[in-house]
């Protein structure tokens, strides 16, 4: 039986889809069978981040409504043969997903894959609640910034009350993934520190992803950053986070600011 992991945040634009792609690809690279499921019906983007936007024929709504088989809708990644994508529908509205339909799809995926990553839409409405409904674990993507932390707190409340596990009296394993961390700004006391975020959310840390141009470049070319730029700090941070998700006990290293002497003299920030 595979593990179902929801990648969620409440707030939009914090990096849910990027993180789903990066973590999923990192896990798939170790040989595990991984399915990425886009729950953002009407505003799908995981296909674009994965570089599979021109290969989408069927989607999750087709599978739920019975107009396509799950095996027809799953898209195999061109780089990793253990990585699959189940796209969201772009033309339907968010009410096209039903709880029974989602339960059925997740059940089938769970029986075939080692990991099922559910990319949640932003917000706390139906789509977001269905994305987390059948999850065993949750990755809460948070930026070190007040509105993102507040929304993460709200999502943690929902994870503890509205998921199947919570309703059965079990608890869902939660991890905070801090993204867009800017070491220079943190050092100047301009950004919430990692300790602040963890203390406020009282949830364990999965990893710290430094702000990086490489993440943008990876989405520009449609490849998860852990595949296309796997030596840069952001990719390495995602690879480590994926290993922790698989249960490895790796210490989290705080990203530091890398500046040359000239940069320091001119007060320039590292890219």
């Amino acid at each position: 039986m595979g593990k179902v992991v929801v990648v969620t945040s409440g707030k939009g634009g914090v990096g849910k889809t990027t993180s789903t792609a990066a973590l999923g690809a990192a896990v798939a690279k170790t040989g595990k069978r991984v399915a990425l499921v886009d729950f953002d019906v009407g505003l799908r983007n995981l296909d674009l981040i994965m570089g599979a936007e021109r290969r989408v024929v069927f989607d999750i709504v087709n599978v739920i409504q019975g107009t396509a088989k799950l095996s027809q809708a799953l898209i195999r990644d061109k780089r990793l043969e253990t990585l699959f994508l189940l796209p969201a529908s772009q033309t339907r509205d968010k009410d096209a997903l039903t709880e029974e339909g989602v339960a059925d799809v997740i059940d089938k995926l769970r029986s075939v894959f080692d990991y099922v990553f559910c990319d949640s839409p932003a917000g706390i409405e139906r789509g977001a609640q269905l994305a987390m409904r059948f999850a065993d674990e949750a990755v809460i993507v948070t930026n070190p910034e007040v509105s993102s932390v507040r929304d993460s707190d709200r999502i943690i409340g929902l994870l503890d009350s509205r998921t199947m596990k919570a309703e059965q009296g079990e608890s869902i394993a939660k991890h905070v993934l801090v993204t867009r961390y800017d070491a220079a700004r943190a050092a100047r006391g301009e950004m919430l520190s990692i300790d602040d975020v963890l203390e406020i959310l009282s949830t364990p840390l999965l990893g710290i992803i430094p702000e990086s141009q490489d993440v943008l470049r990876a989405s520009n070319v449609g490849a998860p950053v852990t595949l296309s730029e796997n030596t840069n700090p952001a990719a390495r941070a995602y690879i480590d986070a994926a290993r922790r998700l698989e249960g490895e006990d790796l210490p989290v290293i705080l990203p530091f600011e890398r500046r040359g002497l000239l940069d320091r003299l001119l007060g320039r920030r590292a890219a």
């Binding site: 007040v146 507040r150 943190a186 006391g189 301009e190 950004m191 919430l192 602040d196 406020i200």
Partner: peptide
């Protein structure tokens, strides 16, 4: 002068 992060933390808490 300290950064604005302590203010952010206090408001959030």
């Amino acid at each position: 002068r300290r950064g604005s992060a302590p203010v952010a933390r206090e408001r959030l808490q």
